[in-house]
């Protein structure tokens, strides 16, 4: 992975919280597809959505997203 690329740990955090993609989608008010594309790195969420995801999972945004070294 190249330096400075987005690393997404959403799937791990969601699984750890015992939630399905559908349940997480409902909590943050988006479609399941949006959660799926964020987890697969296809779609980079906005700051607002990242904050909502972090709040729904009881984590900080940095726990869910980071930059590769």
């Amino acid at each position: 992975m190249a330096d400075g690329e987005l690393v997404c740990r959403l799937r791990e955090a969601r699984t750890e919280a015992g939630l399905t993609q559908l349940e997480l989608a409902e909590r943050v008010g988006v479609s399941r597809k949006t959660i799926n594309t964020v987890e697969n790195g296809v779609f980079i969420p906005s700051t607002l959505l990242a904050l909502k995801l972090a709040r729904a999972l009881g984590k900080s945004v940095e726990d869910l997203f980071g930059l590769s070294d």
Binding site: G29, V30, S31, T34, P45
Partner: peptide
């Protein structure tokens, strides 16, 4: 409606 028009959409 909001979820149907979310940021991915």
């Amino acid at each position: 409606r909001s979820a149907l028009n979310d940021e991915l959409t």
